[in-house]
């Protein structure tokens, strides 16, 4: 197979430019970004095989934090080690940082305007609808797993969070511990 070996600054520049472009123009969550990263670096450039890219995306989803950032860490590392990782992450986070900086300046100037305030108020209602619609989709997926454990966890977590205002971090840590012990038991064959 023909090995492609571009010059070093070239690789880093293509990596940075690719991530910057994808991050600047891709709306929608981490999954959308991951698709575009695969298209650019697997399909077009051929730097990472398709199956490895899919594994990297699965890894990025398993780790905490933004999926887009996680994917760019893994791709950067794979392509050019530590320098690749730094360059790739910078390419990913710079566009939102620049855009939000501009938006926050504008926000401070116009948020108190009568019409803008009304517009934002209406959009807040829309955002609540979007988040709850996403929650319904996610909840349906959990229910389809047909596991009493997951259903109970969902109800208990909601009551603890909404009614009793238990700290979010405590709830996630508890779930992590429970998940780890179940996964450990499952590995030994005690849970199936």
């Amino acid at each position: 197979m023909h090995e492609r070996e571009p010059r070093r600054p070239n690789v880093l520049w293509i990596l940075f430019a690719g991530m910057f472009y994808i991050s600047a123009f891709t709306f929608g969550g981490g999954f959308v970004i991951a698709t575009f990263v695969k298209k650019r670096f697997s399909d077009e450039l051929g730097w990472i095989s398709e199956s490895e890219m899919l594994d990297l995306i699965a890894l990025a989803q398993s780790a905490p934090g933004a999926i887009a950032v996680n994917v760019s860490i893994l791709v950067g590392w794979k392509v050019f080690g530590l320098m690749g990782m730094v360059v790739s992450v910078l390419g990913t986070i710079l566009p939102p940082m620049i855009i939000i900086t501009v938006v926050s300046i504008i926000y401070n100037l116009i948020a108190d305007n009568f019409y803008v305030a009304l517009l934002l108020k209406g959009m807040q209602v829309g955002v609540a609808a979007i988040i709850l619609s996403v929650s319904i989709d996610l909840a349906i997926k959990v229910i389809r797993e047909k596991s009493a454990l997951y259903d109970i966890l969902m109800v208990v977590a909601f009551v603890l969070s909404y009614v009793f205002k238990v700290n979010v971090v405590i709830l996630i840590l508890s779930a992590l511990l429970l998940g780890a012990s179940l996964a450990f038991l499952g590995r030994k064959g005690a849970f199936r």
Binding site: Q61, S62, I131, L132, V134, S135, L138, A139, V142, E145, L149, Y150, D151, L153, M154, V155, A157, F158, S161, Y162, V168, L171, I172, S174, A175, L176, L178, G179, A180, L182, A183
Partner: peptide, 14 residues
């Protein structure tokens, strides 16, 4: 592990 965390995260988002 993620499978167990997911239901909790869904509730937190809701």
């Amino acid at each position: 592990i993620l499978k167990v965390i997911r239901p909790v995260v869904v509730s937190l988002i809701a």
